[in-house]
Nucleic acid binder design. Structure first.
Lengths: 329, 329
DNA sequence: AAGCTATGTGTAATCGGTTACACATGAAAG
DNA sequence: CTTTCATGTGTAACCGATTACACATAGCTT
């Protein structure tokens, strides 16, 4: 690899001059400029970003921390972040933490050691790092935390919508599969749903889940149908859970949506491919990633940010696990 | 952030000594060691990886290039790679290229500028960079290229299995949705399937697709059923395509698998959740990622590698889009 | 007693950039 | 004719680590 010295020698100038043309700052004679450009071309030179980072004390890297890219909710998020950062020449250092605080810390440490200019985290553990938060711009994504910059979808409203739709479409006996309480956005969905259910004229019960994995959901779904056989409406907290519930319902011979309506949350790509296609709440995931990246970019450039917390709207996606609503009575 | 100088001052030694304890090489007096450790602890010091990289001329970073993490095939791959590298303290610089040579080049350039020690690429464009291949250890993943280190699944055998299963389970009129020919592993599946079909006593026809996206597949599926209404077996080239075909088949009232059998390829997570659950060829995706990482690690450490090309076996996953095979006639 | 070797530590060069500062030149201003 | 300023370029310090090399000390060997 050619260095700036090689280019300087080739062009017959000093390294300072080469650096000037590289960065387009300071005076450089037109002719010198040409010579340097030719030398760069000839040697196929491109500057060493590491040396640059060292001097500047910041890189063109951003750290992205996710719980698990394998969870179908996250690839779109990551893509939104990446597409937005990439435009500005930033690159992504990326890690899956599995919500394990140890791993989390290890990643953050090495990210910082690599002098990332910013951090985006969609992990719960991260948002709980009260003390010792990294001193660089940080945006929480799909998580919230007092005093942090955050981008998230309106989970409360999402939960309300689910409850309303279930009720409006005729469910009277609703079971909510409640996700782990320590995950804020999941908690919000639950709260929103309960708020509406409590003020509606329906029965409802809650089954607490320790995780939102397919495996646990399969188990809970069995319990659900044996414990509450009269359930005619289910809020599944996320689409993966909903998929498991849907499968179990079909397996035991329920007719969907006639016997039981099911609504998920997230609108991950597979939801439309389920059978029956899953009615769900759509979060604008890709856009959330983009917004987080844009917010981070502003923080990095120390531009003024108007909103510290960006909340994006959710919407109901009607598919075939809910009944058609009757119009005009 | 504290630097090595701060630590040296705190411990009353020179930076060289601190460096020695950091790297555990060279002589350090027991007592000095203690003092330095305490200073490190006290200042909460951790070495600047950028400065290290500059001097050593290599980082602890590996570049990972994917076509699109949003394609459900890739998250597992990425996870396999990451988990394996993470164990050895390597971090991932990651980019989606959309198979766009421009983007591809931009990513590779910046990866190199950041002095990554190795590269893993699952993109087609990359494997076609004949000249000007980066001079650092590189492993192609799910792609092949003469003279490169590669990790991939046995697509030919996978294609054969599909054809055999379709035929053995009673299809006589088979349509193959052939993926784009320039993607080697996709081509292999096709070749394997044709090899078996040609020597079997069945009719078959081929529909060429320009991509393997859901959108195109929806379109082609319509053509398929109108052009070849007698089709009773479909090889869909990947699971996403299979999902589209399956939906279209159900939409026009075909009974699956009685009227038409469908087999996909990849066994992405959604496949088991489709209805009917999709019979497919499973690639050991996570393991492929791991193997690629392990191979790369060996190349980086200049250990001897026995196989330049690692081919992993595929297997048939029987679910409900294929008919049960009759045993003992 | 002189010479070796093992141990322990510091000085300074180095990696490849950026930039403060000094200096030179020529044109314009007074 | 001196002063001033814009333009153009080079020298060298610096970012934060690593490491070659020099040097010092102490214990062994012969």
């Amino acid at each position: 690899m050619a260095t700036i010295k090689d280019v300087a020698a080739e062009a017959g100038v000093s390294v300072a001059t080469v650096s000037r043309v590289l960065n387009g700052k300071g005076y450089v004679h037109e002719e010198t400029l040409m010579r340097v450009r030719e030398a760069i071309e000839k040697l196929n030179y491109s500057p060493n970003e590491v040396a640059r980072s060292l001097f500047k004390r910041e890189s063109k890297l951003v750290g992205l921390l996710l719980p698990d890219i394998t969870n179908p909710f996250f690839p779109e998020l990551a893509r939104g972040v990446e597409d937005e950062l990439q435009k500005q020449g930033f690159r992504l250092l990326f890690g899956n933490s599995d919500e394990d605080p140890e791993k989390e810390k290890a990643y953050i440490d090495t990210f910082l050691q690599n002098q990332v200019v910013g951090l985006i985290s969609a992990t719960q553990a991260f948002s709980q790092l009260n003390d010792e938060r990294p001193a660089i711009p940080t945006v929480l994504l799909d998580r919230t935390h007092e005093g942090s910059y955050t981008v998230y979808a309106d989970g409360i409203e999402g939960g309300r919508i689910v409850a309303r739709e279930l009720v409006n479409r005729g469910s009277h006996n609703i079971t909510v599969l409640k996700g782990p309480g320590h995950i804020q956005p999941v908690q919000d969905r639950f709260l929103g749903a309960v708020e509406v259910l409590a003020s509606s004229n329906v029965n409802f019960q809650v089954i607490q889940m320790a995780s939102l994995t397919y495996e646990e959901a399969e188990q809970r779904a069995k319990e659900l149908f044996s414990q509450y056989p009269d359930t005619d409406g289910i809020f599944a907290s996320n689409d993966i859970t909903a998929a498991a519930v849907l499968h179990e319902a079909l397996r035991i011979g329920k007719s969907i949506p006639d016997d039981v309506q099911i609504i998920g949350f997230d609108d991950i790509p597979m939801s439309r491919l389920l059978f029956p296609a899953l009615s769900t709440i759509r979060q604008p995931v890709y856009e959330m990633g983009q917004q987080a990246a844009q917010l981070l970019l502003k923080l990095i450039k120390k531009e003024q940010v108007i909103e510290q917390n960006i909340q994006l709207p959710v919407s109901f996606i009607e598919r075939n696990t809910t009944r058609k609503v009757k119009r005009n009575g």
